[in-house]
């Protein structure tokens, strides 16, 4: 049994990664990855919401009428996100300010609906919860890689700290402004997918 849970947790990090393999949640990974800090906070928030909405929908799965299941899922996700937002605003105001509009964006994150449909509707609450955590981790990992690259090359900082020595700038090095714009995030995702597929042959479609 324990083995099964571990694979639920680790598979989404590589072979079933929500961004690079399932191709879910691309939009937010372009929007929030200019700097590392908001990217990671977003990743963690998505992980929490995915885990809990997975668990809730999974425990309701036998009662949900099939014809309105998407609406029910959406209502649960939206309610959870609003509650998380309200709690953040009341107790960790600084973090809530950091996240600002991104909290609302969690609702529209395709990973949530994707996992609810693909996993939570046909599995028990506890595995669903783990699946949510796993997918959140996979999402966070990709966000971290993209935001690391974009922040380093685009602003010369990591986590807000300057890491490129001033000497480089004197020698003519310049931050790449293109990195800050969303299209570069798409190209970085493309490169990540390329590297991942070249190392894992089973991911290549015929």
């Amino acid at each position: 049994m324990a083995n099964k849970y571990t694979s639920l947790l680790t598979k989404p990090i590589n072979l079933e990664n929500p961004i690079t393999v399932q191709v879910l949640g691309i939009c937010s990974s372009l929007a929030v990855t200019v700097q590392m800090k908001p990217a990671l906070v977003m990743g963690v928030s998505v992980m929490i919401v995915t885990a809990f909405s997975n668990a809730i929908i999974s425990s309701l799965r036998n009662t949900i009428p099939n014809r309105i299941r998407i609406i029910v899922q959406l209502v649960v996700v939206a309610a959870l996100v609003i509650i998380v937002d309200q709690i953040l605003k009341a107790y960790v105001y600084d973090v809530s300010k950091q996240l600002s509009v991104f909290v609302g964006l969690i609702i529209t994150n395709c990973i949530l609906m994707g996992r609810l449909e693909a996993f939570a509707m046909s599995n028990k609450p506890w595995p669903s919860f783990i699946d949510g955590i796993g997918n959140g981790l996979g999402y966070t990992l990709i966000l971290a890689i993209i935001s690391f690259t974009r922040e380093l090359l685009g602003s010369g900082t990591i986590w807000g700290y300057k890491v490129i020595p001033p000497v480089f700038y004197q020698l003519g090095y310049e931050n790449n402004g293109l990195m800050i714009l969303p299209p570069m995030a798409l190209i970085i995702i493309g490169i990540i997918i390329w590297i991942q597929r070249s190392r894992n042959k089973q991911l290549i479609e015929n």
Partner: peptide, 20 residues
């Protein structure tokens, strides 16, 4: 089902919003 769902969630959100 949908009526109960909406009422329960509305009540929960109102409670959270008021208490915080």
């Amino acid at each position: 089902y949908s009526t109960i769902m909406v009422v329960v969630i509305a009540a929960a959100l109102t409670y959270v919003s008021q208490s915080l």
